[in-house]
Design a protein around this nucleic acid. Structure first.
Length: 550
RNA sequence: UGGGGUGUCGCCAAGCGGCUAAGGCCCCGGAUUUUGAUUCCGGUAUCCGCAGGUUCGAAUCCUGCCACCCCAGCCA
């Protein structure tokens, strides 16, 4: 990642450098451990960006490990999608692993802890266990089953494994300290009974290790040197260390380092909320272009490069933060500005008739595909009597500093001629239907010294292809500081607008996923549903626009 | 009220006792422009949660306080 070299050093890099110096680490190994229970979103992208780029930065490797210790919540459905998204972002994992690959070792280590007198089988019910745990300010009490003999614990644990007990009947708990000020250390459950078919191990097991027990073991087995995760696991670090130490893993033990997760303005980032949006049909699916999921951003038109650049700029730190979506948009514009072909599309058309041209008179004009890179060629188009221009580019009664077309006014039609508005017609409703103008043959593009203030994009009616456009606004409206409403109440009713207009002929043949800049209207991406018969374009992001009507 | 964290410009974020507190986003000027885009110049914290203290000197060290986040799943 040469992109990381230019960034200032973050605290994780400093820790890793320190560990390399102090522990003599030869190979840095990280892991990205998603639970396969949903689609990846840009918050996950931050996590995996950190995991992969830290490894790469130090010449190490990063494993992809599906954290599948809870069969009730997970599904293979998501495994492939997650792999796809990671590759799409441009990262390659070293080993592909499943937490469930280590169930045998987890079991053996649980037995080891029992033998060491560091784990016991508890018969307390869920409610009793909560009661015994104490509260934030009061210490917990020991379970009456805490002092069972090693033999009895072993016998019970084997029988748990063999399916003798119902779900919830017993748990295996680490014997640590019920009076610990850190609640996570008050004899946490490390194994629970769950008669459930696992998507990876089938019916081999009916007991499954808890995250707090399984994760450090998985890390240690894979030789992970740095286990990077988000802030909420900070209080679990003592338990993480307790497990690796008491399970007798050799040095160097993996080190857990926590960072703040990503939040973006005007959207939600938790799987729970995103799932609601999908299930309650507020969006069309996980890949709705308004979603912060990677599949959604992809469909919207985001490039992996823009997302990585954004993550780099947003930085890595421990302070809770909400990054302005404007930063994400900026990164996309910057990327697409450098490579998206400039094309013509009219989102909301009105007719423009060039009165001093004949019905079948056409002039050939030329457009650059990408002005800064002439080597990428040009396209030809026809300029004729009947054209389309953008409805908002004509005003009967223009505001101050309106550079567009107005009665008696002049503008250049980009790539063609300067035209002067002569008159206009409205329909019954009073809306402008047709604008009339005359063109000045002496002002052909590239052969004319005369300047006018405004330049409009246009399409030749004869050649224009009907197309649909999806224009997006933020999914959520801003919340007031004391806004206690459910986030659904803050959904932006105008987050999606459909427009029907025209595009130039070449765009009908665009392939879904292809991105363009539509001159003066923004960056667009041919949608999944785009076909030659029904071209559909999603606006990824608009152009910056300093024109404002006051 | 227990434990663990965090507080530097509207939003991110550098800064690790010593030049006038990086940079990016946003915003505002101005130049160039056949995209009101791009590009290009220029501007925007005498101040670092607050209050004391140490020091020749502190955002950086110490003390106290305040605010916010996380933890009481047999979720991850």
């Amino acid at each position: 990642m040469e992109e990381l070299a230019s960034a200032p050093k973050n605290f994780i890099e400093e820790f890793i450098e320190q560990d390399i110096a102090e522990k003599g680490l030869l190979h840095i190994r990280t892991r990205f451990p998603p639970e396969p229970n949903g689609y990846l979103h840009i918050g996950h992208a931050k996590a995996l960006f950190i995991d992969f780029s830290m490894a790469e930065k130090f010449g190490g490797t990063c494993n992809l490990r599906f954290d599948d210790t809870n069969p009730a919540k997970e599904d293979v459905e998501y495994v492939e999608a997650i792999e796809y998204d990671i590759n799409w972002l441009g990262f390659q994992w070293d080993k592909l692993c499943f937490g469930s690959d280590y169930f045998d070792t987890c079991f053996d280590l649980a037995v080891l802890l029992i033998k060491k007198g560091l784990a016991y089988v508890d018969d307390l019910t869920r409610d009793e266990m909560r009661e015994y745990r104490g509260t934030l300010t009061e210490p917990g009490r020991n379970s009456p089953y805490r002092d069972r003999s090693v033999g009895e614990n072993l016998d019970l644990f084997y029988r748990m494994r063999d399916g003798e007990f119902e779900d919830g009947a017993r748990t295996l708990r680490a014997k640590i300290d019920m009076a610990s000020p850190n609640i996570n250390m008050r004899d946490p459950a490390i194994y629970r009974i769950r008669h459930f078919t696992h998507h990876h191990t089938g019916d081999k097991w009916c007991i499954y290790p808890m995250y707090d027990f399984a994760h450090p073991i998985q890390d240690a087995i894979e030789g992970i040197t740095h286990s990077l995760c988000s802030l909420e696991y900070e209080a679990h670090r003592p338990l993480y260390d307790w497990v690796t130490e008491n399970c007798d893993f050799p040095e160097p033990l993996p080190r857990q380092i926590e960072f703040a997760r990503l939040n973006l303005t005007n959207t939600v980032m938790s799987k729970r909320y995103l799932r609601r949006l999908v299930e309650e049909n507020h969006v069309s699916g996980w890949d709705d272009p308004r979603m912060p999921t990677l599949c959604g951003l992809r469909r919207r038109g985001y490039t992996p490069e823009a997302i990585r650049d954004f993550l780099l700029r947003a930085g890595i730190a421990k302070a809770d933060s909400v990054v302005d979506t404007a930063m994400l948009e900026h990164c996309l514009r910057e990327d697409l500005n450098a490579r998206a072909f400039r094309m013509n599309a009219i989102l909301d058309p009105i007719r423009l008739v060039v009165e001093n041209m004949g019905e079948s008179e056409y002039h050939e004009v030329e457009f650059e595909n990408l002005p800064d890179r002439p080597e990428l060629g040009t396209r030809k188009a026809r300029f004729g009597r009947e054209l389309y221009i953008e409805r908002e580019d004509f005003a009967i009664d223009p505001p101050k500093k309106y550079f567009r077309l107005k009665p008696e006014g002049e503008v250049r039609l980009k790539g063609a001629y300067i035209v002067r508005c002569t008159r206009y017609e409205t329909d019954e409703a009073g809306n402008v239907a047709t604008v009339y103008c005359t063109y000045d043959p002496e002002t052909k593009s590239g052969e004319c010294e005369r300047k006018v203030k405004g330049t409009l994009h246009w399409l030749c009616a004869k050649d224009a292809v009907p197309a649909g456009f999806r224009l997006y606004e933020p999914l959520l409206l801003d919340a007031a500081e004391d806004d206690a409403r459910d986030f659904i109440e803050r959904l932006n009713p105008d987050s999606l607008k459909i427009a029907r207009g025209f595009v130039e002929p070449a765009l009908a043949k665009a392939t879904p996923g292809e991105r363009f800049q539509f001159i003066r209207t923004g960056y667009f991406c041919a949608d999944l549903e785009h076909t030659q018969d029904a071209p559909v374009f999603n606006r990824a992001v608009g152009l910056k626009d300093s024109f404002r009507v006051n």
